[in-house]
């Protein structure tokens, strides 16, 4: 289990600064696919860090919502990484990212139907069986809704957990992004969220735009500080108890003090809850 404290997404350029002074950072998250090479510096850094910090392995490439069967080779790579590292947590996304052997490097949206539910639950169970561990599933950032969806997202996630025994990774920024983009109230969404199933929280930055139709559009780019409405939603979630909380900053990565500044803000909100 990850500690109910702040963590950050590890970036190689922070390796020395992190070791010199982790500040409020008590655990680290890595993107699984960046550590699927055979050796060299990435693996050596990861071994070094894993001796000092609990590690969360966060996959971005499994395509759990895909219509194609899960990629056996990729599952094997994930298993090898988890077996080697014995991470405190493994998580993936409610999304698809590959189809018939092509990988798109994006988290693509799913309609919430009985058919999708059956497929996703099957893939989650298959993943958990193969890895021999429970996984967490992350709510997506959405730019569009599918007219054929007949499950609310929160109920859809709750039902996947019920069928598979998996837990949830609650990305609060994704709730804000999806709420603005699709037109729902993020606070109401969180009020109905099964917080008891949440074992990790993500906080990241987004970019505000306006779409061609003049509607507000938030792009989930993980390239900025956490936005104020997201901090407010996070405080709302904390009323249900503290959770391991990740600052996710993947693009235009800032220096270490800026990143730990965000982690400090999360730590203060946790302390005040």
């Amino acid at each position: 289990m990850l500690p109910p404290r702040p963590g950050v997404g590890f970036k190689p350029q922070h390796f020395q600064a992190l070791l010199d002074d982790p500040g409020p950072v008590e655990w680290l998250e890595i993107h699984a696919e960046n550590y699927m090479g055979d050796g060299g510096r990435p693996q050596a850094q990861l071994r070094h860090l894993a001796e000092r910090f609990p590690i969360s392995v966060h996959g971005v490439g499994l395509s759990i919502g895909g219509e194609s069967p899960l990629d056996h080779d990729h599952l094997t790579r994930l298993k090898q990484l988890c077996d080697r590292l014995q991470p405190a947590s493994f998580s993936e996304h409610l999304a698809w990212s590959s189809h018939e052997g092509i990988w798109f490097n994006d988290l693509l949206p799913l309609p919430y139907t009985d058919e999708t539910l059956t497929r996703v639950a099957g893939h989650v169970s298959q993943t958990q069986d193969r890895l021999g561990r429970r996984m967490l599933l992350e709510n997506p950032s959405s730019y569009m809704a599918f007219p054929e969806s007949d499950w609310p997202e929160v109920e859809f996630l709750r039902e996947i957990c019920r069928r598979t025994g998996c837990g949830l990774l609650l990305d609060v920024n994704n709730v804000q992004v999806s709420g603005v983009n699709i037109g729902y109230d993020p606070a109401a969404y969180l009020a109905s969220y099964p917080i008891d199933l949440v074992e990790e929280i993500h906080l990241g930055g987004h970019r505000a735009e306006v779409d061609a139709a003049g509607q507000p559009l938030l792009i989930d780019d993980h390239g900025a500080p956490v936005a104020d409405p997201v901090w407010q939603l996070y405080a709302q979630v904390l009323r249900h108890g503290r959770r391991p909380t990740l600052i996710e900053w993947d693009n235009d990565v800032p220096d270490w003090p800026t990143l730990t500044g965000e982690a400090t803000r999360a730590a203060r909100l946790m302390a005040a809850s």
Partner: peptide
């Protein structure tokens, strides 16, 4: 297009 997620 990529055939697997090992973007590096």
């Amino acid at each position: 297009p990529p055939r697997n997620p090992l973007l590096m």
